[in-house]
Design a protein around this nucleic acid. Structure first.
Lengths: 241, 241
DNA sequence: CGCCGTGTTGACTATTCTCAACCCAGGTGG
DNA sequence: CCACCTGGGTTGAGAATAGTCAACACGGCG
């Protein structure tokens, strides 16, 4: 299995063969999480860093009355718990939206990696800063855009991020999320998301499937959502691979 | 002038006298920015890290039609542009909400500091992770809470963060923001924020002044906003100072 | 075959937005 | 010293987006 983290980081820096080897060899163990299970919960302290290899997960927070706000999606190549090094406990939960395959990296292995491989350290910093930028864009999305734009924008982001790790086929893309999972992310009611998606479908931008959404025209979808990938800071163009 | 960054970081780790000296001695030059001026703009590349010493600023993004979404407030002790090390350009702007005093730290000075002072490196990582956590909470705020709760929550966050660097007097706190500046942050229209603030005032939680808001009962304000400071990860209690 | 997770539809509600007018305090310049 | 101007704040009416609720459709899995 190709390593999606390497693929992602190489969008920013070129890694040497040794860097890549170090990254591949770091895996402690592989773990599977089933759909709807939590990978880690609010208040817990993780004891390793986890890397998503397959599937989609989300960071979320719960309100008192049990509503869920998704604050980020995690796709293959994303790291879960860098917090391990610094913070005492999680201030949010991470849940699996699809079946997940992930590898756990021990704290020590991670520290060794950072100490011996400056290129990787820089790349990981980059990844962390991009995560922050994504959160800012998410705020903008939820705070400023109409539900139509919001939904479109979110789908675009997922598309681009999946594309970065090679999980789409060019212009089309399958987003394996239910409408409820989308709803919790855009902060719009479930039924209203449905209506919004149908508008997008009527406009020929997406096609609704059972438990997933297919993007049929990413270009126009980006226009509809006011999407620009600049906040993802993909410095290097895609090539080779 | 006491250094607010040191004060902030000490809420997380204890710094040695040398650490503090290194941090104080790092200042390149002091700079003043007047209210409403931009400290840095979307698309630019900063050439130094800036530390807010006095005043309040905000990170914001503009929509096509010129509306502003504030995605974070910056208070004394906050660093502006860690991006300098990694990212090619800003994906948002930073503007002064009050007159600002800040010091600029050159890239090299910052790198030297990080290399020679591991405690500071860790503290800065902490600061960065807390910033991320704050963004997540901000999403939750904008996405899930009513305008009444939202406004209350935001005021609480500002109160606590100002308190962390010693800028409040216990139970009362002056928040020097106009209603428009609050409005752009909570993502609620200007006139509606006004109505919401009046409700808060009627309930005895705040008092409205011209160009500022005084928190009169932080405890009940926290209840009203569903505020819990856990996401700020203030590991150490306040003492000494 | 039947149930459950998902999706769909429609009616009704309400929070929030928009717009427009007006107020008020403080600073400025004549 | 007063008139004016500007930046902020206040109020109210009407419009609209989005939320809520409830019922139903549908397909796949057990």
């Amino acid at each position: 299995m190709e390593n999606p983290l390497i693929r992602k980081l190489e969008r920013f820096v070129r890694l040497s063969a040794e860097d890549k080897e170090a990254l591949i060899g770091i895996s402690d163990r592989t773990r599977h999480v089933e759909r709807h299970a939590d990978i880690i919960r609010d208040g817990e302290q993780p004891d390793y860093v986890s890397l998503i290899m397959e599937g989609i997960a989300c960071r979320y927070k719960l309100s008192e009355n049990g509503e869920r706000q998704i604050v980020a999606y995690l796709v293959p190549g994303d790291l879960c718990d860098i917090h391990i090094f610094i913070l005492k406990q999680m201030d949010h939960s991470i849940g699996a939206l699809t079946p997940i395959t992930m590898i756990d990296i021990s704290r020590q292995a991670m520290l060794d990696l950072l100490r011996s491989r400056p290129a990787l350290t820089e790349a990981l910093w980059w990844s962390s800063l991009v995560d922050s930028a994504t959160l800012r864009e998410w705020i903008f999305n939820v705070g400023m855009r109409t539900s139509y734009e919001r939904t479109a924008h979110l789908l675009c982001e997922l598309f681009v991020r999946l594309e970065t790790v090679g999980l789409t086929d060019g212009i089309r893309g399958q987003v394996p999320l239910t409408q409820e999972e989308l709803s919790d992310a855009v902060g719009v009611g479930r039924t209203h998301v449905n209506k919004t998606l149908q508008e997008l479908q009527d406009d020929g931008l997406v096609e609704l499937r059972r438990s997933s959404i297919e993007i049929t025209d990413i270009k126009r979808l980006m226009q509809a959502g006011g999407f620009s990938a600049n906040y993802l800071h993909l410095e290097r163009p895609v090539f080779e691979h």
